[in-house]
Lab assay of single mutants.
Amino acid sequence: MEQGTVKWFNAEKGFGFIERENGDDVFVHFSAIQGDGFKSLDEGQAVTFDVEEGQRGPQAANVQKA
C-alpha cells in the first residue's frame, strides 16, 4: 500500500485526487473508500491506498484513512 495526502475531494460529485509520496496525483472515486457510512475525504487528510489501472489511467483503490 502507498501513503498519500488528499489534495482535494468533492463530496457532491464523489471524486477527487490524492497526492502520492512521489508527488504525482492519483484519481480517487468515493466507491474506493473503505468503511461504513458516508464516504468522503477531507483536504490534507492522510490516507493509505493501492493503485490500479482504470479506464482513464491510474486510480486509487482500497482507500483507508490513516
Rank of each mutant, 00 (worst) to 15 (best):
M1G: 13
E2K: 10
E2R: 08
E2Q: 13
E2S: 11
E2N: 11
Q3E: 10
Q3R: 15
Q3F: 14
G4C: 02
G4M: 01
G4D: 01
T5H: 15
T5D: 04
T5Y: 14
V6F: 03
V6K: 01
V6D: 00
V6R: 00
V6A: 03
V6S: 02
K7H: 06
K7D: 01
K7W: 03
K7A: 05
W8V: 03
F9A: 02
F9V: 04
F9C: 02
N10S: 13
N10F: 07
N10K: 10
N10G: 03
A11V: 12
A11K: 15
A11C: 10
E12M: 14
E12F: 15
E12N: 14
E12G: 13
E12R: 15
E12C: 13
E12Y: 14
K13S: 07
K13F: 09
K13L: 10
K13Q: 08
G14F: 02
G14R: 04
G14Q: 03
G14P: 00
F15H: 06
F15K: 02
F15Q: 03
F15G: 02
F15P: 00
F15D: 01
G16P: 00
G16F: 01
F17G: 02
F17P: 00
F17I: 07
F17D: 01
I18Y: 01
I18C: 02
I18E: 00
I18A: 01
I18V: 04
E19W: 15
E19A: 15
R20E: 02
R20M: 08
R20V: 08
R20D: 05
E21I: 14
E21R: 14
N22S: 12
N22V: 13
N22T: 12
N22W: 10
N22Y: 13
N22F: 12
D24T: 15
D24R: 15
D24Q: 14
D25F: 11
D25K: 09
D25H: 11
D25P: 08
D25Y: 11
V26K: 01
V26E: 01
F27P: 03
F27T: 01
V28T: 03
V28L: 08
V28H: 01
V28M: 07
H29S: 04
H29G: 03
H29V: 04
H29M: 06
H29A: 04
F30Q: 05
F30E: 04
F30K: 07
F30V: 06
S31H: 08
S31Y: 05
S31M: 07
S31T: 12
S31E: 04
S31D: 04
S31C: 06
A32P: 01
A32Y: 04
I33N: 02
I33L: 07
I33V: 08
I33P: 01
G35I: 09
G35L: 08
G35P: 05
G35D: 09
G35N: 07
D36S: 14
D36L: 11
D36C: 11
D36E: 12
D36Y: 13
G37I: 06
G37M: 06
G37Y: 07
G37R: 05
F38A: 07
F38G: 06
F38P: 09
F38D: 08
F38K: 08
K39P: 07
K39R: 13
S40V: 10
S40T: 14
S40M: 09
S40K: 10
L41K: 02
L41H: 02
L41W: 04
L41I: 05
D42F: 14
D42R: 15
E43K: 15
E43R: 15
E43C: 10
E43Y: 15
Q45F: 05
Q45D: 13
Q45K: 05
Q45H: 07
Q45E: 13
A46H: 15
A46W: 11
A46C: 10
A46E: 10
A46V: 11
V47M: 02
V47E: 00
V47T: 03
V47P: 00
V47G: 00
V47D: 00
V47H: 00
V47Q: 00
T48L: 11
T48M: 11
T48E: 06
T48D: 05
F49W: 02
F49L: 04
F49S: 00
F49R: 00
D50F: 13
D50G: 09
V51Q: 04
V51G: 02
V51A: 04
E52V: 15
E52F: 13
E52Y: 14
E53D: 11
E53L: 13
G54L: 07
G54C: 06
G54I: 04
G54V: 06
Q55L: 14
Q55Y: 15
Q55V: 14
R56T: 07
R56I: 07
R56P: 06
R56W: 15
R56L: 11
R56D: 08
G57W: 05
G57I: 04
P58K: 11
Q59V: 10
Q59P: 01
Q59C: 07
Q59D: 02
Q59N: 05
Q59W: 10
A60S: 04
A60E: 00
A60F: 01
A60Q: 00
A61M: 13
A61W: 09
A61K: 13
A61T: 12
A61R: 13
A61N: 09
A61C: 08
N62E: 03
N62Y: 06
N62P: 01
N62L: 05
N62K: 08
V63H: 00
V63Y: 00
V63R: 00
V63T: 03
V63G: 00
Q64G: 08
Q64A: 10
Q64P: 01
Q64V: 12
Q64S: 11
Q64K: 12
Q64L: 11
Q64N: 12
K65Y: 10
K65W: 08
K65T: 10
K65H: 09
A66T: 12
A66H: 13
A66Y: 13
